[in-house]
Nucleic acid binder design. Structure first.
Lengths: 283, 283
DNA sequence: AAAAAGTTGTAAATTTACTACATTTAATGT
DNA sequence: ACATTAAATGTAGTAAATTTACAACTTTTT
């Protein structure tokens, strides 16, 4: 994806002259994007067609297309390298990598999310009599967070970690209730069962999960996030951040739908906390 | 800075034909960067020099330079407009804004975080006999998430929502224990008390909080994140995502410090989950 | 209503990138 | 070590794209 990365990785496959071009570009990419093929050729001390061939080797259409890709890589001063954490990485490297890959995942999530579905879910949530948030394992903390957000809206919200409590809660659902189930893969058996229970009680089931998963198929509505997970670490990281951001979006949609007076209500909830805090600002 | 923004803002100052060009570009920027000046001119139904003049009006050198700027604006993670959500925003707008402001906050967090402290905290965590994660309110879910991560490492981890349990847990601390306290503002009274209790029992107290806060002052080490919070919404959003990312970083540092054999251990934990899931991949 | 300023398009000039072919360099087999 | 073949690089010409200069047309101002 990132062309600068591609250049460094591809290094072995370059010919001698092509490597000269690579060096010049890597040494000063900012200059490169403002140069013509002739200038760059001169800088690298090679011929123009060599530069062109160099571009093609990196799967670009030609020099102008290459420049476009390069410009994108340099955008924002943040060359989203997005490489995975490696064995020998020091604190500086892995900190950088995790921040960057998290941001990159959010970007991917943003592009994959379906606004139409978001709007429908917000619709449902604003009209719900009771809202439940359930998730297990890593997704439990996401559900927990959702509880914390929606609780402030003065709406009946339910959240359990215990699967038996989750089941019982769903058995008491009515058609005015919305159950939000969170799972990255959508293959957690007990969550699928809960979806079935909730639906058989006419509740609306919203899944924050993968579209074609067993869980996804049991839901009335699925908010899917196609976030690539770095499986090297054996821990859900990026997917969970994306889920949380989605919760933020739903909560925001909720407050906007409820209008201005409602916002004041939120402020009141926040002010209540003041007694438990030391002076000044608030959380 | 961002050229797309510039186009919309500059709108009034455009001439009739230039506005046609602007519309075509805004309607489909991705197409624009791959078109020649001739194609774009035809699409906007104007002459080629008009397109050129349009580019110049936006302080670019000409059409190719304009394309470069446009490409950068469209690059991943770049457009960071970072405006706050407003009353009349529709789902499309607020979704976009929240994703973008979350990414922007992560960028800020990345720059403000102190790598040296991260390294020291990782040090402490790997050597700890017992690790506790405590937070209240919105930070509770962050602590919850930390539990979920560190639990996989086969280290004694503790997490409580209940402040009395938190207190009791801290009273039993020894000097080999590490207590991680999470709070955005660092002004939650009971957390400050917990910090004092833990320290008086010789435990090491790490704060994921603001440096100069009452809580921060009670900690042995403070991991501070200077994340600007959009207070209009009266809900912690960005700060919490940054905290979670920090947890990811600590967990990653932890596994790296423990080395390769340890990583296999993680894989085993993950494989254990398989029984509770439907076929195929894992979480 | 005429002049001036501004806008837009045509056509030519210039710059830029690309293709085809020639030459050189490196690699392999005899 | 030499010949043969393949790969790499460069030269020169061509095609495409961008820019400039200028003319025609609109709109605004006096």
């Amino acid at each position: 994806m990132n062309i600068l990365e591609k250049i460094t990785q591809h290094n072995a496959a370059f010919s001698k002259s092509e490597r000269k071009v690579a060096e010049v570009i890597l040494a000063n990419p900012q200059t490169a994007i403002h140069s013509s093929i002739a200038t760059l050729a001169k800088m690298a001390d090679v011929s123009e067609p060599t530069v062109n061939r160099f571009c093609r080797r990196l799967d670009t259409k030609g020099y102008p297309d290459f420049k476009l890709h390069l410009a994108q890589s340099l955008a924002n001063g943040t060359p989203y390298v997005n490489r995975h954490v490696e064995e020998h990485d020091g604190p500086e490297e892995y900190t950088k990598k995790i921040f960057e890959s998290t941001m990159a995942s959010l970007e991917v999530a943003r592009q994959s999310v379906d606004i139409h579905t978001i709007n429908r879910v917000v619709d449902l949530l604003t009209q719900a009599q009771k809202i439940s948030f359930f998730g297990l394992g890593a997704s439990a903390s996401v559900a927990h967070d959702a509880l914390n957000k929606f609780f402030r809206f003065n709406v009946p919200v339910v959240y359990f970690e215990d699967i038996l409590m989750q089941r019982m809660s769903c058995m008491n659902c009515t058609e005015d209730d919305v159950v939000v189930l969170i799972s990255h893969t959508g293959r957690t058996k007990s969550l699928v069962e809960i979806a079935q229970i909730a639906r058989s009680n006419d509740a609306t089931v919203v899944g924050i999960t993968s579209k074609d998963s067993p869980l996804g198929k049991e839901c009335n509505l699925v908010l899917s996030l196609d976030v690539p997970e770095d499986t090297d670490m054996y821990m859900p990281m990026a997917s969970r951040i994306a889920q949380l951001t989605l919760i933020d979006i739903l909560a925001t949609g909720f407050t906007l739908r409820r209008g201005n007076k409602f916002r004041e209500n939120l402020k009141r909830v926040k002010d209540t906390l003041r007694g438990s805090r030391f002076d000044k600002k608030n959380d």
